[in-house]
Nucleic acid binder design. Structure first.
Length: 453
DNA sequence: TTTTGAGTTGTTCGA
DNA sequence: GTCGAACAACTCAAA
């Protein structure tokens, strides 16, 4: 059993497949390969979280077979040492994972070992739902209807009495140095289930009404557990189906978004790096410079933006609504290409999922699937007042504003005497940059019209 | 085959 | 202060 993004024992079809193949007489090797090639895009917070999750999984199986190196070599080495006839995985639909799995598959085949794909990180695997013309959906709502109609199998329980074996020496799981002050959530399958049930009990009923409020702890915070497969969405959907109300319906829709973006990325793997809507190739963006640095450091002078960017560095996580606000600010107010922001998010988010991250950014930038209308530009002051009405979220992450009254908290430059010492004045004027953004889209449209004639 | 209506997340402007 | 219109273009599905 080669674990990758499915660090759990319950509701794990690949594990069930491995256990069935082993039968009564043979053991199952719980393998995880630390791939040095993947440590570049994954930032320190994500690797630290992974290490904690692997420790938890290791405890559940009496020790993981941990290897470090090229998966094509390591998986073959372990499989041969175990005299295995098959290696079992959950299918990976990401651009890199697909290539890697094909390489491992042929490396195994050279030794007569089969790579068996069973299950995926999704309730409905990418490619399974298509529009009437057979093409992948490009609009969320029709996709989500088809996704719901498609349905999914019920969850599977964890196999019992598995004889875990480790034919080779394990690579030590070095503790990742966690940057000072970084607060990571509890990792592992049990932590994921605890969090999920706490949310079902205390958060679901008010979820639809309060999920956008940054100052309240009103979201499920399940993204990191889903990212590492510590719980399967199918398990969550089964419990949601037993509940009534707007919260359950809304949460199901949010899970559908995750699957929609995985489907889009599977259909268009290049969209991890390139504009989904090709005409944006001629969109004018500014070279990233001090403005990008100020955004990353939470020093833009717009409190809701700065609070979000500082939450990201403090916790490896950011509230969903605030992700949209800071993304809109980078693209529409600072005129920086979405890919710079997406890269920063990938580096810092513990829940960083390539499909959701890149396509969330493309949506904000207006170049993605079902993209935001070009005129939908977030006003950081209004968004702050609406989704952090008393300023508690801002005060939590921006100490220099801790004493500011809610009347001025989202526009401290209007304070009598200006912003408090240590907090910057706005680096740009939102109203001015909003109009500049609209002008650039106008020019983009003008150009693409000319080109198409 | 053609037409029509709807489509995550907003803001500004003018009546 | 409130409220509706306007701000594109395109995809999808139903009529």
């Amino acid at each position: 059993m080669w674990f990758r993004r499915d660090l759990r024992l319950a509701d794990n079809p690949a594990l069930a497949s491995a256990v069935a193949a082993a039968g009564a007489d043979q053991g199952v090797v719980p393998l995880f390969v630390l791939d040095p090639a993947l440590s570049t895009p994954a930032g320190v917070p994500r690797r630290a979280y992974l290490a904690a999750s692997l420790r938890d999984l290791g405890a559940a199986v009496g020790g993981l077979q941990l290897r470090r190196g090229d998966p094509a070599q390591e998986v073959v080495a372990v499989a041969r040492a175990a005299s295995a006839t098959s290696v079992h995985i959950a299918a990976d639909f990401g651009p890199r994972g697909r290539v890697r799995d094909r390489q491992v598959e042929s490396a195994l085949a050279a030794h007569g070992i089969e790579l068996v794909r069973a299950g995926s990180p999704y309730a409905v695997p990418p490619g399974r739902v298509a529009s009437k013309t057979g093409d992948p959906y490009q609009v969320f709502t029709p996709y989500s209807r088809a996704w719901r109609d498609h349905g999914w199998p019920p969850p599977m329980i964890a196999p019992r009495g598995v004889r875990w074996t480790r034919p080779l020496a394990s690579h030590p799981l070095d503790p990742e140095p966690v940057p000072g002050g970084l607060r990571l959530p509890a990792a592992g399958e049990r932590a994921a289930h605890r969090r999920w049930h706490a949310f079902l009990d205390r958060g679901l009923d008010r979820y639809a009404a309060t999920r956008d409020r940054a100052d309240l702890d009103s979201t499920s915070r399940m993204s990191v557990h889903l990212k590492w497969g510590e719980i399967h969405p199918r398990t969550m959907l089964a419990e949601l189906a037993r509940r009534r109300g707007a919260g359950a319906a809304r949460y199901q829709t949010e899970l559908a978004w995750r699957e929609f973006y995985a489907d889009v990325l599977w259909a268009r793997p290049e969209s991890a790096r390139e504009y989904l809507r090709g005409e944006f190739a001629s969109m004018e963006y500014d070279q990233p410079g001090p403005a990008l640095t100020a955004w990353c450091d939470g020093l833009t002078g717009y409190p809701i933006v700065d609070a979000g960017m500082r939450q990201l560095r403090a916790e490896g996580w950011m509230h969903n609504r605030i992700r949209m606000v800071v993304a809109s600010f980078l693209v529409k107010d600072l005129h920086v290409d979405w890919r710079h922001g997406a890269r920063h998010f990938m580096r810092w988010l513990v829940d960083a999922d390539l499909a959701s991250n890149q396509h969330g950014w493309q949506w904000t930038a207006g170049c993605g699937t079902d993209a935001a209308p070009y005129f939908r530009i977030f006003n950081p002051t209004l968004q702050g007042k609406r989704f952090d009405p008393h300023g508690d979220y801002v005060r939590r992450y921006v100490p220099h504003l801790a004493q500011v009254d809610e009347k001025w908290i989202h526009q401290p430059w209007t304070l009598p005497g200006g912003p408090p010492p240590g907090y910057p004045a706005p680096i740009v004027d939102h109203d001015h940059e909003r109009r500049e953004s609209l002008r650039r889209v106008e020019r983009l449209r003008g150009r693409s019209t000319v080109e198409s004639q």
